[in-house]
């Protein structure tokens, strides 16, 4: 068995793993290509991160309660498909955005209903709604790529005080989520529910409501991520949002959010994780690596992150084990 000090040290390293990884990535790509470290490229990375990042923020809420949502990519797609139809039908831009966000919340609430009320495993429910959503989206778009008018593109290209709007939206979502998680009673209850549902119930927390809310928030974030993604490439293709749930889970886990619940943070954790994933992809791009290798490399990185999480929770369980006698106790 490891001594308490050694396991404590091990935990410190495990906590900082993603930061270390990030440093390594920056140094390696920086050495391989000078273009990589330029400010413009860094800004680029941030813009590219914003959509996945927002998705990952929503996912963090769900993961903190020891749940999961595999349907976020599909939610993105449905929201984008409906939004595209409406805007092509001549609806006002602002109204369309509101409706898209509403669809996200609705979808999340549907997931939540099945998970909290009917007590079905989160991953089954969201796997089913994922297919349901993809089918619905394809039906709406009639499996054709839908090119959208300028309004989305303008949103993406606009800058406020020199900062690109997608990055601003991302920052806004992160700020709100961070405040909600760290500064509101709801946020702290999310952690409590994830740490120990039974204890949370005993402490008088309405655990059903908390779990319901996180899936709704996750749906809302998915819709917002869809909007930001459209602003960068204003077209709804049949593969829009496909497999993005995976990137979102990965970003959150890389940022130190545990799949076992109760542990993690939007800032800096998830944000760092999302930026890290995008940085790797961007770096591979700058280095002209075969794009077919991207998914391999990212899933490799994710596997490491998940593995670290599993090891960390095992070390923690060992450290928190009940002791029968302590050394200081006399015989």
């Amino acid at each position: 068995m490891t001594s308490p000090i050694a396991s404590h040290l091990g935990l410190r390293v495990l906590h900082q793993a993603s930061l270390l990884l990030f440093a390594v990535v920056l140094v390696v790509f920086g050495m391989l290509s000078p273009a990589f470290l330029q400010t413009s490229n860094m800004v680029n990375i941030l813009i590219q991160t914003s959509s996945t990042g927002i998705l990952a923020v929503g996912m963090t809420f769900v993961l903190l309660t020891a749940g999961v949502d595999l349907s976020v990519g599909a939610i993105m797609f449905v929201a984008a498909a409906v939004g595209g139809k409406l805007i092509l039908g001549g609806w006002a831009f602002g109204g369309v955005l509101a409706i898209m966000l509403g669809i996200g919340v609705l979808f999340g609430a549907l997931n939540a209903l099945f998970i909290t009320r009917l007590a079905i495993m989160a991953f089954v429910v969201t796997l089913a709604t994922r297919y349901f959503g993809r089918g619905l989206g394809l039906r709406i778009t009639e499996t054709r790529a839908m090119n959208l008018p300028e309004s989305f593109y303008e949103l993406g290209a606009a800058r406020l005080l020199g900062v690109p709007v997608p990055v601003l939206i991302f920052a806004g979502v992160v700020l709100l989520a961070h405040l909600a998680l760290t500064r509101t009673p709801f946020g702290r209850q999310v952690y409590a529910v994830g740490t120990d549902v039974e204890a949370a119930r005993k402490a008088g927390i309405n655990t059903g409501a908390v779990r319901f809310s996180v899936y709704a928030i996750c749906g809302l974030c998915a819709a917002a991520a869809g909007i930001v993604a459209l602003s960068q490439a204003p077209a709804v293709s049949p593969s829009f949002g496909n497999n993005r749930e995976f990137m979102a889970i990965a970003a959150a886990v890389l940022g130190g959010t545990s799949l076992f619940g109760g542990r993690g943070a939007v800032f800096p954790g998830t944000v760092l994780g999302a930026v890290l994933i995008q940085t790797i992809e961007n770096g591979l791009n700058v280095l002209n690596v075969n794009p077919y290798l991207y998914p391999l490399i990212t899933s490799g990185v994710i596997f490491v992150a998940v593995l670290l999480d599993a090891i960390r929770s095992r070390v923690l369980a060992q450290a928190n084990r009940r002791r029968i006698y302590t050394v200081a106790q006399p015989d």
């Binding site: 509101t184 709801f186 702290r188 409590a192 204890a199 109760g262």
Partner: peptide, 26 residues
Amino acid sequence: LFSTLSIAENLFIGGFPRSRSWLPFI
């Protein structure tokens, strides 16, 4: 107790003091 929360948060998890009744902040 909730191991990932702070001492203060554990003391008030059942009912946090609010800054203003119309704001959700602790």
